[in-house]
Design a protein around this nucleic acid. Structure first.
Lengths: 155, 155
DNA sequence: CTTTTAGTTCACAAGTTAAAGAACCAACTT
DNA sequence: AAGTTGGTTCTTTAACTTGTGAACTAAAAG
């Protein structure tokens, strides 16, 4: 029998899951990842997962494997048991934020290519683009220092 | 006849368009928005757009209207002409970055709710979560000042 | 060696998205 | 008033996504 969760937790799984969905993760994987963050059990079995979330074994299997492959979930085993117990890697959350900031930088480098290709005559538009580029450049330059500041603050 | 674009520009439209797609925009809208950023004509007609991008009138019409509704594109008209000339609103780019940062904050507030629901016994995990929350809190607090710093630097 | 456990894989159904094409319509031209 | 221009809307189609259930498999238990 799978662990039972309070209604509040089940609601939170929906809310958090929706958030992951919005940022591009598949629905089933989003729920599973949310569940692993919300359940008080440090780790859950395969049966727990598809039982609590009321999804088919195949949906659970595929999504769990996706989450493992994308380094967002890992698992432990217990001596004498064949089951795997899955848990979310919190580290992946901060890495997710990191990736978001990196994608700003990818965008910026495309913008720079756009600027190179644009005719000089369209001065006003180009200035607008340069403004965005300079903003993103600045962010990229300053964020590492900001991160350090936070690390120091923690101590 | 629609305006013709160099191969380099057409490639860039693909690259930039792909980037918008990845961040959730529909394919046709992504190409149109990219085109409006890359074309040297300050603004393009309906015919230009579906002609250059080789898409149906309906695809173009729907996507243009979506872009207008979501405030990413606007248009001008010329005296004595019925055509509309569409152009991208660069302001929407910076607003896009802004929205991304705001979504970090929404995420953070869900994380806080998760923390409230978690049992105290799972100390290590909770500490990890608190760490992420504190990181996001810090970012939210510091980013406005960073933005001001950039604005002053520009002058 | 037969059954159970812990999953995986496959074949399919259902739903969603994206685009095409044709018909349509309103405003302007001739 | 008949045609043309600049789109819009509707219907259909193709493709992709998501998930189900059933069959399968490999390891362990009885």
């Amino acid at each position: 029998m799978p662990v039972q969760l309070s209604d509040k937790k089940l609601e939170l799984i929906e809310e958090l899951g929706m958030h992951f969905e919005k940022s591009g993760m598949q629905p089933a994987a989003s729920r599973i990842f949310a569940l692993l963050m919300i359940s008080d059990q440090g780790e859950l079995s395969f049966e727990d997962i598809y039982g609590i979330l009321n999804m088919s074994k195949s949906a659970a299997s595929n999504s769990i494997n996706f989450l493992i492959a994308s380094d967002q979930v890992d698992f432990i085993t217990k001596p004498g048991e064949r089951k795997r117990y899955f848990r979310c890697k919190l580290k992946s959350l901060k890495e997710g934020v990191q990736k978001m900031l990196e994608s700003m930088d990818v965008f910026n480098s495309i913008l720079k290519k756009v600027l190179e290709q644009r005719a000089e005559e369209t001065e006003e538009f180009n200035k607008g683009l340069e403004d965005v580029v300079s903003y993103l450049d600045f962010m990229k330059m300053e964020l590492p220092a900001l991160f350090l500041k936070w690390e120091n603050l923690k101590k």
